[in-house]
Design a protein around this nucleic acid. Structure first.
Lengths: 354, 354
DNA sequence: ATCGAGAATGGAAACGTTTCCATTTTCGAA
DNA sequence: TTCGAAAATGGAAACGTTTCCATTCTCGAT
């Protein structure tokens, strides 16, 4: 029982005036005598008239709608991004159309295409690989305003992201300062996220520069349920690493749990550092040391960039890279235990302890 | 530099045929000679033509779009609901337009109205009070298919939700079985969520039936940063309760942390039970005992219900109330310490510490 | 009373589709 | 060759707006 909602034509008819007049009155622009104004308003009220955005959009070729593509909402980082972007868009009278790509480049492109067909006025997007995204091609071809989030700036597209390499380097320094020499980088679906790759590369570089052993890449392919078992296996197989840098907090927390299950004590037997700064990190004991970022600021900034372009204003500058992250100390990071297999193939003298 | 995308008219012109013919070819329905088919297809390819959903929607008065209103994406429960609903809608060729109400009835209604103006074909909604939502009024007036999520069914609107009262009663039984008699119910923004209210009522009723003292309502108004301090104050002021049932897991975890900060040991000095079953509950030590629910199933079910209505099929039955939750044991729930002030407000001896 | 300026009004086109229907074309059978 | 049926085609209306522009009103000034 779908009701046909009243149109402006119905209103005009009931108010015994032309459509153009009704439109002017209802929109509050253009001249109209007091008498007709009242008639129109009354008619609209009687009918419970509401404009249909469809006709409007068609005529103005503007939908007041922004498309948003993120990998997943299960990661609180992206949930925050979306929520912030949504709020900001709303404030400017825009709605957000959401699509989740599930970290799949194919779905990503399809989503972008669909959004474009829906005539979104702008786009806010996180892609798995900004440099070779077929979807972004189309966006450029159409000249639709678009901002990247958590992707490095790519071509002419503005980007709101953290400086992954610098942040990873900071983590390396924290490890080094405490005397760690053998570390691991823990990633889920490594291949599917250039964020992960950047963090690993930045970390590896810094480790080298700091005279540490190259970090071993601990990669987990799928997360089907047995994440913990996989982690346990990984940890058991790499007893010589004294510190683990996880590519996100969730993974870091899981690693903490797995390590505990193995009877390891944190940070004595294993130090763990995360990435993102989600609030859960503060709920566990010991607190998770991590790189804290500000997803809301990213989402909001991206939205503002797009909205400014739509309004013909000059968009805000992207974030200051150095301010996009900060390191948060936490009990999960400490010096390795004296007895740990620190010596490895290189270092001979144990690093000094406080 | 917004490009005017090519329209079907451009294609027709280039293919030297009528618009109607081009439409038929491009849509693959209706007769067309092989020759023209080729010409049209070639023209479309040359121009990079893509249909605009706008004209289509106007003409079919269908947008293949579903509106979705949830309180917030910061709560993983709703993030899951949205993600699942989005996936299901996508599968059927629908897009999701998202709005967050921030637990505010006013915003809620506004969002619904906007979505309706955008001519969404259906709605998936979580409201703060289903019985007196002005927005839902409008929905009914317009006859737009709509499903409620995490709200009790209201009037004719189908709902996908957990049986809050039954679940709360189960929690009460768990407390009772371990000898707790004085419990508290912890809620954030109690007034803004009928979910919270239902849980409290179900809990209180069951406590009474089990011969326990009426649970004290521990309410927190705002969460501006100092959530932990507020919790600490609340806990300190209610030393006689031996068990706390939190209206959601996040709150429960925060309470665990606050209690630890107060030197209390869990579950010896205080047992804590949450609600929702978010995965973080398994990352902390001890694990959080909680009512686990299935937000994805709810979101997916709601989407299916709406989609079925749109397709003219008979919608699936709602969830079986008894299956909407299950209790998960966890280390955060245990018997109260023997020395605890079980006897009532009069207790004189300080809680024993190890 | 007449005129003209400015206000008020409504018809119609345009936005991009789909679809009805009338017209034209094609082609096989007589 | 002619006829008729079926296939192919394109004009036009409709969907709900906004807006241009031409027309009609209203009034004050002459």
């Amino acid at each position: 029982m779908k009701i046909r909602p009243p149109t402006i034509k119905d209103v005009a008819e009931r108010a015994a005036c032309g459509i153009a007049t009704a439109s002017r009155v209802l929109n509050g622009r253009g001249p109209a005598s007091e008498k007709t104004r009242e008639k129109v308003l009354a008619a609209a009220a009687d009918l419970g008239f509401e404009f249909s955005d469809l006709g409007r959009s068609l005529q103005s070729s503007t939908t007041r709608t922004i498309g948003c593509v993120v990998p997943s909402l299960a990661n609180p980082v992206f949930a925050d991004v979306v929520q912030a972007a949504q709020a900001e868009a709303n404030r400017a009278g825009y709605q957000l159309i959401l699509a989740c790509s599930d970290y799949d480049a194919e779905l990503e492109s399809r989503a972008i295409r669909t959004l474009l067909a829906k005539q979104v006025d702008g786009l806010i997007v996180t892609v798995s690989n900004a440099d070779e995204s077929e979807g972004l091609e189309q966006v450029r071809a159409r000249g639709v305003p678009c901002a990247l989030v958590y992707n490095r700036s790519c071509g002419d597209l503005p980007a709101w992201t953290v400086d992954n390499r610098a942040a990873a380097a900071a983590v390396a320094r924290e490890f080094a300062a405490r005397g760690h020499r053998h570390t691991g980088f823990l990633a889920l679906e490594f291949g599917r996220s250039d964020r992960s790759r950047e963090r690993f590369e930045g970390f590896a570089e810094a480790c080298a520069a700091l005279g540490m052993a190259p970090p071993v890449l601990l990669e987990i392919a799928e997360q089907e349920g047995q994440l913990l078992e996989l982690l346990r296996a990984l940890l058991s197989a790499n007893r010589d690493v004294t510190g683990i840098f996880a590519s996100n907090d969730y993974l870091a927390l899981a690693a903490m749990k797995a390590a505990r299950g193995l009877g390891m004590r944190i940070p004595r037997d294993l130090s763990i550092v995360g990435f993102d700064g989600i609030s859960t990190g503060l709920m566990v004991e010991p607190n998770l040391a991590t790189v804290v970022t500000d997803p809301r600021a990213m989402g909001e900034g991206a939205a503002r960039t797009v909205l400014a372009q739509l309004a013909g204003e000059t968009p805000p500058a992207g974030p200051d890279p150095a301010r996009t992250f900060s390191f948060r100390q936490g009990g999960s990071l400490g010096p390795p235990a004296p007895g740990s297999t620190d010596g490895g193939e290189a270092a001979t003298s144990p690093p000094s302890r406080q």
